[in-house]
Design a protein around this nucleic acid. Structure first.
Length: 489
DNA sequence: AAAAAAC
């Protein structure tokens, strides 16, 4: 098999209809219910190919309609052999969808359930952080389609609440993300439990060498589908960066939010601590803000997401748990409170806005020490991002915008002011880690985040030897070794 | 460097 070839067609979705694919009336009815008539480009390409039973390697950003692209034909194929018996034994798991995050699993499951609603097929979702028993109960009752995060799925396998021996179709959604998160060993264990004879669909936002290798080991003669070149940012998104000194970043975000009177904004932070602090800071400024990150309980995560979707919260401060996949529709604006360490994450983050033809703004705050990150991002997206100036933003005090009568600079620790104490991570923020081991033990914590910011300088000051290559190569080697070794447990 | 994910 040669290199990945692009089958990207300037599809003409306006002329294609879902009814052209020979899908069952039950599926078409579900689509009609939701007002869907025309497939998106990736749907138009994927549906016929999946219906043919081919393996697929799909490159697609979120917001392209990828979920329907694989779930509609899967449902169709399952229906072709569906039976209406109520016996659990007659409802073995036949399609398995794996996702990297719990929220994404829930979201995919909601879609699948919707598409199935006029069919006898049953689907369910399993993920960690919540009680396992109800999940096991549902699966023992028999389901054809399971959407899962890898760890909890394996848990169910060990508990024997699920058998994977009848799985005919496997979907790996956000495969690049799963690799990044170290799910490769779990993926391999799961795949070892599946029948050899099956159809595989893999979706990834990027075509890194690791992803190609994964595709080569798990897919059989796949058809490659690509819509919108990966690494290309949506053209509808207006991007701008504002340079601010590190200690004024939070004020800058508050200023931007207030200035533009923005509703429904996601603000991305690189750290969980940073996200919590920023959310609280914004709340103190009177905004309706909430944080979502991996140290929140699953309940809190869901609650924040729901509140945001319902419009009860205007600002969702998130780590990269929300960077990919989440279908928070058509946000007018995304703000990067930190520039992401991985340039690719920038693309995913700003992909939350400017979707479905709408335009959007992507605003990033950065400071001196982030020049390198900005350069990496611009290199990846092959464009220079506009440097903006925050008109009227005067964080250094001395009057400035304080004449608006705002409460005195809640988010501006002066030197020596000991606001740090009150900025510690909330107590009780994670009474329940969802069963995952508590992150680092107290005595092992490196409290870098509690220290005041200091521009880090090498020991010799001037010779800040720049050697990014080896550090970048390391994780890749690990992935390559795992892929090559195909170790089994 | 960070984040995510099973018990």
């Amino acid at each position: 098999m040669s290199d990945i070839e692009t089958t990207a067609q300037p599809a003409t979705p306006a002329q294609v209809r879902f009814s052209d694919f020979g899908l069952s009336p039950a599926i078409l009815q579900a689509l009609t219910d939701q007002g869907y008539e025309h497939p998106t480009p990736i749907q138009a390409q994927a549906i016929p190919v999946v219906l043919q039973g081919r393996d697929v390697m799909g490159a697609a950003q979120t917001g392209t309609g990828k979920t329907a692209g694989f779930s509609l034909p899967i449902i169709q194929l399952l229906l072709a052999h569906a039976n209406t018996s109520m016996s659990p034994a007659r409802h073995p798991v036949r399609a398995l969808v794996l996702t990297p995050t719990r929220e994404l699993a829930v979201q995919v499951a909601e879609n699948v359930a919707n598409y199935c609603k006029h069919t006898p097929l049953r689907s369910t979702v399993v993920y960690g952080g919540v009680d396992i028993k109800p999940q096991a109960q549902i699966m023992r009752g028999g389901v054809e389609i399971v959407i899962a995060t890898p760890g909890r799925l394996l848990d169910h396998v060990e508990q024997k609440s699920i058998s994977l021996s009848q799985v005919q179709m496997l979907v790996m959604d956000e495969a690049d993300r799963m690799l990044d998160m170290g799910f490769l060993p779990d993926l391999q264990r799961i795949i070892n439990l599946l029948p050899k004879q099956r159809q595989n669909l893999m979706f990834s936002a990027t075509f890194s060498p690791e992803i190609k290798k994964l595709a080569n080991s798990f897919l059989t003669n796949p058809v490659t589908i690509e819509v919108a070149r990966s690494n290309a940012t949506a053209d509808k998104v207006t991007q701008v960066v504002y340079k601010v000194s590190e200690e004024h970043k939070r004020d800058a975000v508050a200023y931007i939010l207030r200035q533009r009177e923005m509703k429904q904004v996601i603000v991305f932070s690189n750290t969980k601590i940073g996200a919590s602090r920023l959310a609280r800071g914004l709340e103190q400024e009177g905004m309706k803000a909430s944080a979502i990150h991996g140290d929140k309980t699953q309940q809190e995560r869901m609650a924040a997401l729901e509140a945001f979707k319902r419009g009860e919260i205007d600002v969702l401060v998130a780590t990269d748990v929300a960077a990919r996949g989440l279908d928070i529709s058509d946000l007018p604006c995304v703000i990067n409170y930190d520039l992401p360490y991985n340039a690719e994450d920038y693309v995913h983050r700003i992909g939350r806005t400017g979707r479905a033809g709408a335009s959007g703004d992507a605003i990033s705050i950065y400071s001196d020490k982030d020049e390198r990150l900005l350069a990496d991002i611009e290199k990846l997206i092959k464009q220079t991002i506009k440097r903006g100036a925050l008109e009227g933003f005067n964080p250094s005090g001395r009057g400035g915008e304080q004449r608006h009568g705002e409460r005195r600079a809640s988010a501006r620790p002066e030197r020596g002011e000991r606001s740090e104490r009150s900025e510690r991570p909330e107590r009780g923020e994670r009474p329940d880690r969802g069963g995952r081991p508590m992150a680092p033990r107290r005595d092992k914590i490196d409290p870098w985040f509690l220290k005041p910011y200091e521009p880090s300088r090498g020991p010799a000051g001037a010779t800040a030897s720049v050697a990014p290559a080896p550090s970048a190569a390391k994780p890749k080697q690990k992935v390559a070794a795992l892929l090559g070794g195909l170790r089994k447990e």
